[in-house]
Simulated scan of single mutants.
Amino acid sequence: MRLAHVTLAAALALAAGPAGAQVLSNPNATNQALTSESTARGNQIGTTSQNNAARMEMQRSQTSQPPAPPTGAVGAPRR
């Protein structure tokens, strides 16, 4: 198990080595990518929040409804 972790860590370190040394030809590309990713994540969080609020409202309306009237024959009360 420990050997698998060491092997995985070594493989990840080797894969990240050359990528870290690369220089971007357009430094603004990183900022644009991060901005668009942030915007997409914000939209996703907003949508999730709206869906959760709608679900909660539906659950509240279902639990706050008065009980249904009894069904069946209802006779006159005895005196």
Rank of each mutant, 00 (worst) to 15 (best):
L14D: 07
V6C: 03
T48N: 13
R2P: 07
M56R: 12
T39G: 03
M58P: 00
R60H: 00
N26P: 03
R60T: 05
P18H: 13
R79E: 03
T71H: 02
Q50C: 03
Q62P: 00
G17M: 15
G75D: 04
T7A: 14
T35G: 04
M1L: 04
Q50S: 13
R79F: 00
A11T: 12
T47N: 10
G75E: 01
A9I: 12
Q22A: 04
T30M: 11
N26D: 15
S64T: 10
G72C: 05
G42N: 11
R78Y: 01
N31T: 13
P70H: 01
S61D: 09
A29C: 08
P66M: 14
T47M: 07
H5E: 06
A53V: 13
A33Y: 00
Q32Y: 01
V74Y: 04
L3A: 14
Q32I: 06
G75L: 10
Q50N: 10
Q59E: 14
R41T: 03
L3W: 06
P66D: 09
A53F: 06
R2L: 05
L3V: 12
N51L: 15
G72S: 08
A73R: 02
R2M: 11
E57S: 12
A4G: 04
A13P: 02
Q22Y: 01
P27D: 02
A10C: 09
N28S: 09
S38M: 09
A73S: 07
R41C: 00
L14F: 09
I45A: 15
G20I: 06
V74K: 15
P66T: 15
